[in-house]
Write a protein that binds this DNA or RNA. Structure first.
Length: 275
DNA sequence: AATCGTTCCTGATAGC
DNA sequence: TGCTATCAGGAACGAT
């Protein structure tokens, strides 16, 4: 489940590995993942162009080309973008490899077990419009305590965990970090987002920043399928406090961690530490 | 307008 | 053993 820290790690890796390379060819065995256009059109629009920048917006990966086209990649649950020095179908027989950008030096492979991931082409100039409804980036300077307070006020009845996962409010937090952030902030996932005290808003703000920053430094959470652009695991799974820890003792107080469902998503928390 | 449920998909695991 | 059922989950979409 790539969330902000995982996507950030991949984007950093790709900027090191494939920037300024030309797309020589593209192959796909699952063109359903390509949105709006046919495989033939997709290929026509990208082959021969050079990658000039790779960036992240929320959980989206943007690969900007020198022909004013941007390739938008969303990894959804199990997507992986991994660079190879070999080429598609020549040496790679992994059945979950669905798409491959063949570059001047090696290739960029898109693996995806559950096939939810998508590829979309967009004019680079229309990126702002495309993401106009996306919320604030929690690692950017424009995300401050007052901004968070305003966002929580906007979602009156909503549950706090659903609120911080809502991409229209804050872009980048998914199911793993939502539970970890609420534990770090000592806030119960049962709380309504408009019922937080001033102190709780402050600690939630601090926890969002510190947990996400720490997860970026540790190169993401490999609890199942996530891998970086070299195919390596992250390390944050080693320091998870509550996610998938149900039945185990809370490291802070010894109370058994519980698993509940909020908004059709599994949620993990310490019923003693989180109020 | 906001919120809810459904859909996409495969692999791991539980239950019989 | 081998089968079926259930669950995991981001975000678009349709329905209310």
């Amino acid at each position: 489940m790539p969330e902000l820290p995982e996507v950030q790690t991949i984007v950093s890796d790709l900027n090191y590995a494939i920037l300024h390379q030309k797309i020589v060819s593209f192959e796909s065995t699952f063109s359903k993942a390509i949105k709006d256009v046919t495989l033939a059109t997709f290929k026509k629009k990208i082959i021969g162009s050079t990658i000039i920048a790779i960036e992240r917006i929320g959980k989206n990966i943007l690969i900007n080309l020198d022909n004013r086209i941007t390739i938008l990649v969303h990894l959804k649950m199990t997507g992986q973008l991994i660079t190879r020095d070999t080429r598609y179908k020549i040496q790679d027989t992994n059945k979950h490899l669905h798409h491959c950008f063949i570059l001047e030096k090696g290739s960029l492979c898109f693996y995806d077990i559950r096939k939810f991931g998508t590829l979309t082409l967009i004019s680079t100039e229309k990126i702002g419009e495309k993401f106009s409804k996306l919320g604030v980036d929690p690692l950017s300077r424009s995300f401050n305590r007052e901004k968070l307070k305003g966002l929580l006020g906007k979602s009156r009845t909503k549950n706090i965990k659903m609120a911080i996962m809502d991409q229209r409010l804050i872009a980048g937090i998914g199911n793993i970090y939502a539970s970890e952030i609420l534990f770090d902030a000592k806030i119960s996932p049962h709380k309504k987002s408009d019922s937080l005290s001033s102190e709780q808003i402050s600690s939630l703000y601090r926890s969002i920043k510190t947990i996400l920053k720490k997860a970026v430094l540790m190169r993401g959470t490999s609890v199942s399928d996530y891998r970086d652009a070299s195919g390596k695991k992250g390390r944050f799974q080693k320091v998870l406090r509550v996610y998938k820890k149900n039945g185990q003792k809370c490291q802070a107080c010894g109370t058994i961690i519980e698993k509940i469902v909020i908004g059709q998503r599994s949620t993990f928390y310490c019923p003693n530490c989180q109020k």
